[in-house]
Computed example of a mutant assay.
Amino acid sequence: MGGRTTCLLPALFLLVIPGSSAISGPRAVRGVEWGSLTVRCRYDPGYERYVKWWCRGAAWNNCRFVIKTTGSEKEVKKGRVSIRDNQKDRSFTVTMEELRLDDSDTYWCGIERNGTDLGNTVEVTIDPAPTVLISTLATSNANMFTAPVAPKENQGQLPLLGSVHFLLLVFLKVPLLLGMLGAVLWVNRPLRSSGGNPEKNQ
């Protein structure tokens, strides 16, 4: 009797401790800020119709459920997180989008069942987004000082505009300049006396 009890203890231990061999997944995954990442967890036969979930928090008893499936293969989306169960492949995937630095934490992918759920811990690390390359900045600055190019649809009008400017120069500006020159010459003309020749001194 005592030997049988000893043999049953390991089996009972698996029932109350999360992370048994019935479900498996990556130990750790990394993502980049503003990007996305996907976590894939596998499970044993017999759990195809069970609800799968994604939970956040290092403590198993206090982790917060982020999203759950409906027991079918239909994708469920909640905010920036989605989950889909592939029952034929006996795996489900969790996708996190628009990643933020504070998304870094300990998560669990698990299976809901009577009694204690099954779970596998996953460490999620989000790295800061890379800085803009210097070459990109240099290109942007160079474009700021580039002279604007006339649109193609206006390029055919440039000779016509030049001809109009030339005509204005001939018919308006040249006579105006000649008139101004004549006025200047008229003001500076030499004055003559009206009494004929000047008298000579006696």
Rank of each mutant, 00 (worst) to 15 (best):
K77N: 05
W60Q: 07
A183Y: 09
N143S: 12
G2M: 10
L177I: 13
I67A: 11
T95Q: 00
L181F: 03
E199S: 08
T69L: 04
K52T: 08
R42P: 04
I134Y: 06
L178T: 13
V66I: 13
R42E: 06
V122W: 01
H165S: 13
V39F: 02
D44R: 14
V122L: 08
M1I: 10
Q157T: 07
D44I: 05
L177G: 00
K68D: 09
G46R: 01
L176R: 14
V164H: 03
V32Y: 01
V164N: 08
L14N: 14
S140H: 08
V132L: 08
V124G: 13
P198A: 15
W53T: 02
L161G: 06
C55H: 07
R4A: 14
V66K: 07
S36V: 00
L185Y: 00
L101M: 09
P198Y: 09
G25F: 07
D44E: 09
A11M: 07
T106H: 06
S36Y: 03
T125Y: 12
L167N: 12
A59Q: 14
W186G: 01
I111H: 00
L177M: 13
S140V: 00
V174E: 06
V16C: 04
G195P: 00
F166H: 02
G179A: 14
S193F: 09
R90T: 07
N154L: 15
T136N: 08
L172I: 10
R189C: 01
P130L: 09
S104D: 01
E123V: 03
K77Y: 03
D85G: 05
D105F: 04
I126Q: 05
L177T: 10
W53R: 13
S91Q: 14
V132E: 08
I17L: 15
L8F: 12
V29D: 00
L178E: 01
F65N: 14
T131F: 08
L14Q: 12
W53S: 07
R100F: 00
V184E: 03
K173W: 12
E33V: 11
P10Y: 01
V39P: 07
L8W: 01
D103Y: 11
T70H: 03
S91I: 05
P45C: 05
G71F: 07
E73H: 02
D105A: 05
I126N: 06
T131M: 09
E97H: 02
D127V: 08
E97I: 03
G25P: 05
C109F: 08
G25L: 02
D89S: 09
L160Y: 09
Q87D: 09
G31S: 03
L133V: 01
Q87K: 10
E75M: 15
P175R: 13
Y50A: 14
G35S: 10
L160F: 03
E153Q: 13
G115F: 07
L181H: 10
T136K: 06
I17N: 15
P18H: 03
E48N: 05
P151D: 15
G179T: 11
G2S: 12
C41D: 05
G46Y: 05
